[in-house]
């Protein structure tokens, strides 16, 4: 990844059914996913939620961008599983699966590791589907309808507009440094390039402030939006179905004490050893690449 690559915040344009669902039901779905994910320890529910998000991504025709967004899970997921095999987040005594030199691998933490990964996976997957199929302005218009103060919406919308501007400016300054024979990566390049971008940004604040003042920002009265968000009967149906299904599953999980299936699902010692080697190897490869990047001339 390079800093010239845009941040993965863009809407992937399309005209699928998922794109046409208004932001309200999508937000309900995301919030419901997060609540359900953190109220259950049932890995079947968690990974089914992630699978449903995948189906939505395929339906919306955003699978490629969606998978790129999910890459963030690779380092977190690999280190999470490795750490849970090394030090389970469950009460002792732990069952040893194998010894690797001075390190003991335990079976007990693997189920909980899959639960934690499933929570992050499901929440991230549905959030990415929402973000990649919803126009940011529609989202802020919906926030306004939900009585979120328009000043807050303005700040959030302005942030999203400023991010690519600042990103481009840092890139220009780093390129200028490189063209003068200075370092273009690592600490010694980034820190000096940050100061001019920050100072330039602060100077921009004054101009923006005056232009807002001249446009009557802060005046009272009904605020209108250029984009209109209209609800359809299908949006209401999606919202109601999402609430009913997820509330039922969340209540069932809470009533069954998080619905933990660790007693029914067991992992063999060989599986734990193989998985540890795989995830630790993946993570150490990422760390090696990181260190190589840092010391690259």
């Amino acid at each position: 990844m390079s800093i010239s690559n845009p941040l993965p915040l863009a809407l992937v344009p399309g005209n699928s059914f998922i794109h046409n669902v208004s932001p309200g039901p999508k937000m309900i779905l995301v919030v419901g996913y997060v609540i359900l994910a953190f109220s259950t320890q049932n890995i079947i529910i968690l990974y089914s939620m992630a699978a449903i998000a995948f189906i939505f991504a395929i339906w919306a025709g955003i699978l490629r961008t969606f998978l790129k967004g999910l890459l963030i899970l690779l380092p977190i997921g690999s280190s999470l599983l490795a750490l849970q095999i090394l030090a389970p987040a469950v009460e002792k005594p732990w069952t040893a699966a194998a010894e690797l030199g001075p390190v003991t691998l335990y079976i007990d933490g693997l189920y909980y590791g899959f639960v934690l990964l499933g929570r992050i996976f499901a929440s991230l997957a549905i959030a990415l589907v929402m973000l990649m199929t919803t126009h940011p302005s529609d989202m802020f218009t919906t926030f306004t309808k939900l009585r979120v103060p328009y000043t807050l919406n303005f700040m959030q919308a302005m942030t999203l507009q400023l991010i690519p501007v600042f990103q481009r400016e840092v890139g220009i300054i780093l390129s200028a440094q490189k063209s003068r024979g200075m370092k273009g990566s690592g600490f010694s390049a980034v820190l000096p390039s940050f100061i001019p971008v920050f100072v330039g940004a602060i100077e921009r604040v004054q101009q923006l402030s005056i232009s807002l003042e001249s446009r009557g920002f802060g005046s009272t009265g009904h605020k209108t939006s250029y984009r209109k968000v209209k609800g359809k009967w299908s949006d209401t149906a999606i919202a109601v179905c999402s609430i009913v299904i997820m509330a039922t599953l969340a209540v069932m999980s809470i009533m069954r004490g998080s619905w933990n299936l660790s007693d029914q699902i067991t992992f063999s010692a060989n599986f734990v050893l193989g998985l540890f080697l795989l995830v630790a190897g993946t993570f150490l490869t990422i760390v090696t690449i990181t260190i190589a990047f840092m010391f690259r001339k």
């Binding site: 959030q156 302005m158 991010i163 990103q167 840092v170 604040v205 402030s209 807002l212 920002f217 990181t290």
Partner: peptide, 26 residues
């Protein structure tokens, strides 16, 4: 209006800073 513009600038700088630190693997 100065506060309302300074805050998004600071937020954007935070997000871009985090992204650059991640992209350059700092």
């Amino acid at each position: 209006t100065f506060i309302v513009t300074l805050i998004p600038v600071c937020v954007a700088l935070n997000i871009v800073g985090g992204f650059i630190a991640h992209a350059l693997r700092l």
